[in-house]
């Protein structure tokens, strides 16, 4: 979980604001049905992701591999099985039409922009800062915020445990079992130790936190005071600019010869 990276202006944005803005973008994109507009929006989001995440290009590129799979897998069902009039290809159950093709591509880009924005957020936000900010700006109750932070801390420990259990299962010969019943058996062999260990650990941490006088009732101070800054304004402006630019580009330079991708019968 420990990666080296440079702080960019995206790291300096108030995490709560960033989160709500990203969610806003998500909802906005749900109502974009013009393929060309979506294309430009995705392109803009991608620029943000590629140039300003602060992580080395090699890592960013590596993180993009799943994007392609998501794109393909999201697009194909719709391309193969979606409704449409202008048939391009038909074979058995598969029926590709012009409409279903563009709709499929649209869905692919939609998945891509969600992924890009989401990953940009993750790469530029330290969870601890996010929860500190949510406590201060969104009035999230400390007992939820600190539970999340405590939980996040356990992730590397859990992953380590997962590998230990895998080795232990190999020693016991669990992988020799075959068949459908063994699938549930394997699922159980992994999840029981992992869950029981995690529950006990969570319980102990909660007790330890209360032993350190954690309580929701008392007023707390914050080690990381988080507020708003000028960068936040820049962030909002850049998104407004992105949306406007995308509208104009889609209007003047449409890359696909389609408008609304929804099916109208």
């Amino acid at each position: 979980m420990e990666f080296q990276y440079n702080e960019t202006w995206l790291h300096k944005i108030n995490p709560t604001l960033k989160l709500f803005f990203m969610v806003g973008m998500f909802l906005f994109v749900l109502f974009v049905h013009q393929l060309n507009l979506l294309l430009y929006l995705t392109f803009g989001a991608f620029i943000l992701f590629w140039f300003f995440s602060g992580h080395p290009k090699k890592r960013v590129a590596l993180l993009m591999i799943p994007f392609i799979l998501v794109f393909v897998s999201t697009a194909t069902s719709m391309i193969f099985f979606g409704k449409g009039e202008t048939t391009w290809f038909k074979f058995g159950l598969i029926h590709i039409t012009e409409e279903s093709f563009y709709r499929g591509i649209h869905l692919g880009f939609r998945a891509l922009i969600f992924a890009t924005l989401g990953l940009t957020f993750t790469l530029t936000t330290r969870p601890v800062k996010l929860f500190y900010s949510l406590m201060q700006q969104a009035k999230l109750k400390p007992k939820y915020a600190y539970s999340f932070m405590a939980g996040m801390r356990l992730i590397p420990i859990m992953i380590e445990e997962f590998f230990t259990i895998r080795n232990a299962m190999r020693v016991r010969g669990v992988q020799q079992q075959r068949g459908l019943r063994s699938l549930f058996f394997k699922l159980k062999s992994y999840s029981i130790p992992l869950l029981s260990q995690s529950i006990r650990r969570a319980h102990r941490i909660a007790v330890a936190m209360e032993a350190k006088r954690f309580s929701d009732a008392s007023k707390r101070t914050f080690y990381y005071p988080i507020g708003y800054s000028k960068t936040d304004g820049l962030f909002i402006l850049s998104f407004v600019a992105l949306i406007l630019l995308s509208y104009y580009s889609a209007e003047w330079l449409p890359l696909f010869p389609v408008g609304d991708v929804r099916y109208e019968s």
Binding site: V128, Y146, M149, A150, M152, R153, I157, R200, R201, R204, I205, A208, M209
Partner: peptide, 9 residues
């Protein structure tokens, strides 16, 4: 247990 009394990273 050293691993289960902290809540911060």
């Amino acid at each position: 247990d050293p691993d289960s009394q902290f809540c911060m990273p």
